[in-house]
Amino acid sequence: MTAIPKPAIPYDSRHEAEEEGEQETRAQLLHTLHGISATTYKDSGHASRSVHAKSHGLLRGHLHVLDGLAPELAQGIFAQPGRFEVVMRYSTIPGDLLDDKVSTPRGLAVKLIGVPGVQLSSLDPDADAADHDATTQDFVLVNGPAFLAPTARQFLGSLKLLASTTDKVPRLKQALSTVLQGVEKVLEAAGGDSGALKSLGGHPETHVLGETYYSQAPILYGQYMAKVAVAPVSPELAALKGAPVDLHGKPNGLRQAVMDFFARHSATWEVRVQLCRNMETMPLEDASVVWPEDESPYFAVARITALPQAGWSEALSRLVDDGMAFSPWHGVLAHRPLGSIMRVRKAAYRMSARFRFERTGHLMQEPRNLDDWPAG
């Protein structure tokens, strides 16, 4: 018999506490990320994201908020049934554009357009003026339930390690990735895994569409606190869970796999929410802790549907990769990011976007519709 979960805990500012030296950590984080962007820009002549530079899928869809949600789930933008346009961007972690044989964790950024509510940018004096009238909500997700590091300071250390590999010989990265994937398989066979190995190139060569993606760090969920996940549920998508992708001689094999899928299939994902029900086992300030699902299961609050489409193209890359920014701080007050990891990332996302847009000439503003979405 399934136990009834404890009630969700209402948010209280006392649940958050600034980490010692957090402002210095933030400054070093900005310096490190700016260095990655400057290095890749110098090499390629094209301004890319500091992390998650390479996209593998660029999709358009719709999100439908489910009917009849329980009161603790009917919060924020999910308070009432509704339908929003959605952009989905699949990516991998590095800040340089690598052969897919260098296999690293996968990311999914989701942007909802036309959402109601007070925007965080309208309350932020450092926000760009163009964002003050935004109507978007972003969820920035990775295919693992917990963050690589527990605190902002330790996150900085991991990022410096990743930054040190930027601009290194691609063939050496491929060789390292092959070795790390073998080590990771041994760890998983023994019942474990290593986020550090995966981040440096040891991630299994699996299909990006078969993964479940997680916010890892918590956000406000109306009057509560929660983590968010997006999971594949349509049969064709679910069949891709753990499915290998042949990347031999295919530097953009992940991208091609997404294009091949959407040439034939529609897709449906669930947006799921895990509410904080125990501050001891579900802390806000340690993003490396996996919140136990036996205490707080994930519940579906919405579905995203995408029809057959291009999946990726140069025109889509110009629109989304070059022309859009994704950040957990793009959104409404009811879903404000929580914890030190999220706080230091705020300025980092903004810096990365400004670096790109200053060099590409794109306007730094949130989309209000998808009327200019390329046909193919």
Rank of each mutant, 00 (worst) to 15 (best):
Y224K: 11
R356A: 12
A353P: 00
A226D: 13
K346W: 15
V332A: 02
E285P: 03
Q28M: 09
T212Q: 02
E358F: 00
A243W: 09
E188Y: 12
E85N: 13
R60E: 12
V245T: 02
S266I: 00
W312D: 10
T305D: 14
A287M: 03
A217G: 03
G202C: 11
P218M: 05
V271M: 13
D321I: 11
I219Q: 12
H64P: 01
P244Y: 05
R14V: 08
M351N: 13
G191M: 07
S327R: 01
E236Q: 15
E18H: 07
L275N: 06
E205C: 10
E280T: 09
E205F: 00
P328R: 04
L58W: 09
Y41G: 06
P150W: 11
A109Y: 08
V179I: 13
D124T: 06
G57T: 06
D100K: 02
D371S: 10
A27W: 02
I77Q: 00
S352R: 04
R356W: 02
L275K: 12
T135I: 09
L148T: 08
K168M: 15
L275A: 07
R350G: 08
E72G: 05
R354P: 00
A130K: 07
T305Q: 09
T305A: 08
T40I: 14
A129K: 13
K250V: 10
S313L: 01
G45I: 09
V110W: 14
Q80I: 00
A267I: 03
A229M: 09
R26N: 06
S48A: 13
M351F: 13
S50Y: 09
H203Y: 14
D124Q: 01
A3T: 06
E211Y: 13
P232L: 05
G210W: 02
V179G: 05
S234L: 12
S103N: 05
T166D: 03
E19H: 03
G68K: 12
P328E: 02
L284T: 09
T165M: 11
L370R: 06
L240K: 12
S352I: 01
D138Q: 05
